[in-house]
Amino acid sequence: MSSTLSHLNLKNFTFSYPQAENPVLTNINLTFKDGESVALIGPSGAGKSTLLNHLKRKTPQSSMIHQEYLLVPQLSVFHNIFMGRLDKNRTIYNLINLIYPLRKERANVQRTARLLDMDKFIDVQCRKLSGGEQQRVAVSRALYRDSSLCFADEPVSAMDPENGEKTISLLTTGRTTIASMHNTELALKYFDRIVALKNGGIHFDLKPLDVDAGELKELYSE
């Protein structure tokens, strides 16, 4: 397991998009521990998503919750969650489930969906769901994938507070989680470690208890 995480170590990491003038991230140094939950905070444009996408690309086995959900709107909630484990099954088995969901898989998916109260929507097309519900499907897909490493880009941005808290508590237990968080309150409450990004660099990297209000204010100030 530590081998996967050592993959993620960043040393003087700089990243720029092709044809862009300035790098999005400069001289980032980060290492992650097994089972740790890390919240990335900072103003928009700080490079949180870029960092997450970069880390995700290095670990194909991990799961990822995208900011834009990236669900397949035409397919049902079942199919979208089921997609989390496509690589665990044989292709032909997947296709059968695409056309006719088998009872066993339905039960598995149902179990995961229940965690976020999505089991009642299991046969609904995703495009018919509200934004918050869609985000819950995206989280369920990542949970269903059952990977020991999970990346999440603003995983609760569209949810009501209750579901948001439930989601974060699910994500931060039993796996290594690296998530960008808009909601600092939730971040401080549930995560083991807070990494603040600003202008493409690390502003601070502290335990939640060591983060004080002044520093947060400075982080989000212009």
Binding site: N53, P60, H66, L70, M83, L86, T91, N94
Partner: peptide, 16 residues
């Protein structure tokens, strides 16, 4: 735009 945790395998990816 496809999610980054999309499964490997062309056929899976195409049909799902």
């Amino acid at each position: 735009v496809l999610p980054l945790d999309v499964a490997k395998g062309k056929i899976n990816c195409f049909f799902f």
